[in-house]
Amino acid sequence: MRKTPASLSWPLIGALLLFSAFPFAYLIGLSLTDSTLARPLNGFSGLDNYADALASTAFKSSLWRSALFAVGAALLQLALGTALALLLAIRGRRLGWLGVALLLPLVTPPVMVGVAWKLLLAPVGGALPEIADTLGSSGFNPLGSSLGAFVSLLAIDTWQWTPFVTLLLYAALLGVPRELLDAARIDGASTRQLLRHVILPLIAGTLVAVFLLRLVIAFKVFDIVYVVTSGGPGFATTLSAFDIYRTGLQDFQVGEAAAATVVFSLLVGIFVTVVSRLHKRVREVAP
């Protein structure tokens, strides 16, 4: 055995410094100074930017909205994905063309997903309002109401990501040793008991890992908000990433956007830490 030379890690470490450490340090600098797009880091301003960010109703409300969106999307997709993965496992044959079907939503550019759904939901000419009209409920316009728009974004995100969750959980189910299932069957376990006492404990680690991954990605959502709702109606779908983009690069409040970003990162950090703790615990308990 030879020691792996550290030089292998240098490109990655250099890139992380350039792309993560430096931006974060710079961001803290921006958040503590008067900055414009033309002149960054223009004079120390203490915590003024943080006060401004936290005084902004749009930003403050975007925080819990982002959290609700991320947790809601992750849970919903985990439930649907697990159900579909179980169905695929019960189907008991190789994935075949279903593999392609699961892959396509995942690789569709989110902007195009947004456009497709926006056209589908358009109050005039959109397919879903037309169908609702035929069924006798006229004026179907989910993007026009706060709740409807938020639920629409959840649905769009779920359309895009459930296949991915399904694929990962299906793989985890395939990893459950057959002898274990056969032994439980011989002992007279029903399908429900099998699920509850054999399969679930074995895939619990994957479930939490996938939940964590989806949570992290769902906090990043920007594209579909930008394309489908622009954060509206009102602020009903203004998630934090979108609000920060708007504050910094459309209203040019660079310092305030930087402070908001720091606060948002802390929020994401808290969620990620809690779920990774849970993940560690589950992995320790799991056989």
Binding site: P23, F24, V216, I244, A258, T261
Partner: peptide
């Protein structure tokens, strides 16, 4: 050492990309 580097790399992935937009814009 490899595990540690992997953990740091994944931690950087957790940060939403909007975090890096302004600093990278100036850079």
């Amino acid at each position: 050492a490899g595990d540690r580097l992997a953990a740091i790399t994944m931690a950087s992935y957790c940060a939403p990309p909007v975090v890096a937009v302004l600093p990278l814009f100036f850079m």
